[in-house]
Amino acid sequence: MKTYHLEFEQNLPIPLADAWDFFSSPLNLARITPKEMKFTVTSNYTADTKMYPGMIITYHVSPVFGIKMNWMTEITHVKEHEYFVDNQVFGPYALWHHQHHFTEIPGGVKMTDILDYAVPYSVFGRIANSVLVKKEVKKIFTHRTKAVDDLFGKYTG
């Protein structure tokens, strides 16, 4: 299985606690995901649900060609105000390991995403990644950057 590695960084002009509260809530994920993905959290959580190791989050998502899929992730590690990790339990990827890191910086917080993923179907998955999947994953994070800027303002240092 071929594994791919991507990293994304974004500086936000908000306090660390505010960034943590927003990004550690699964209910906010739909707000920063492209609309065409039809991303819906199906877990029965409320806005005040605190993230914890072992937390299972389920979604409906249409990542490509409008095909609706179920996706389940587990929060495996949480260090409040520093990082959390989600891993796919089942869904569209052969592997999805996503680290979310938060570091206080002057005037805000630096958010770093470290993503390791694999596409199923061996050689066909590698072809699909080079033709479509990698571009779509990058597009999701590009959209998220803009959506987060729209929500919190652009960091000016």
Rank of each mutant, 00 (worst) to 15 (best):
D113W: 05
A118N: 08
N28H: 13
P120N: 06
H5Y: 12
V78M: 09
N11H: 09
K68T: 10
L27W: 00
F102V: 12
M37L: 15
M72A: 10
H97N: 03
D150T: 02
F39Y: 07
L12S: 06
V78N: 05
G125K: 04
V89S: 07
G125I: 08
D18C: 07
N11M: 11
V123Q: 14
G54T: 06
V133Y: 01
L115C: 08
F23Y: 00
H81Q: 13
L6A: 14
M55A: 03
G125Q: 02
K68Y: 01
T33S: 05
V137S: 04
G157A: 04
H101K: 15
W20Q: 07
T33F: 02
H97R: 07
R126V: 15
H100T: 05
Y117I: 04
I75L: 10
A47E: 05
D18T: 12
L132D: 11
V148Y: 04
P26H: 06
I75K: 02
H77C: 14
D21R: 14
W96C: 08
H143P: 02
F141H: 04
Y83F: 15
S130G: 10
T46W: 12
K110P: 12
L151N: 04
A47L: 15
G108F: 01
V61M: 13
V109F: 06
Y155W: 06
A147H: 01
P26M: 13
P26S: 07
N44T: 10
F23D: 00
A17H: 09
K139V: 12
K79C: 15
D149F: 04
T49E: 04
I32G: 00
S62H: 06
K2M: 15
T145V: 08
Y59A: 14
K139R: 13
W71M: 06
E82N: 11
P120A: 09
P92A: 05
N129M: 13
H60A: 06
L132C: 11
G91L: 05
Q99T: 13
S43I: 10
E74F: 01
G153E: 08
S24K: 03
F102I: 09
I67T: 03
Y83L: 15
T40P: 04
I56C: 04
T33W: 01
H81L: 15
M72T: 12
M1Q: 07
K139L: 14
T156E: 15
M37P: 02
T103A: 15
I14Y: 00
D149G: 10
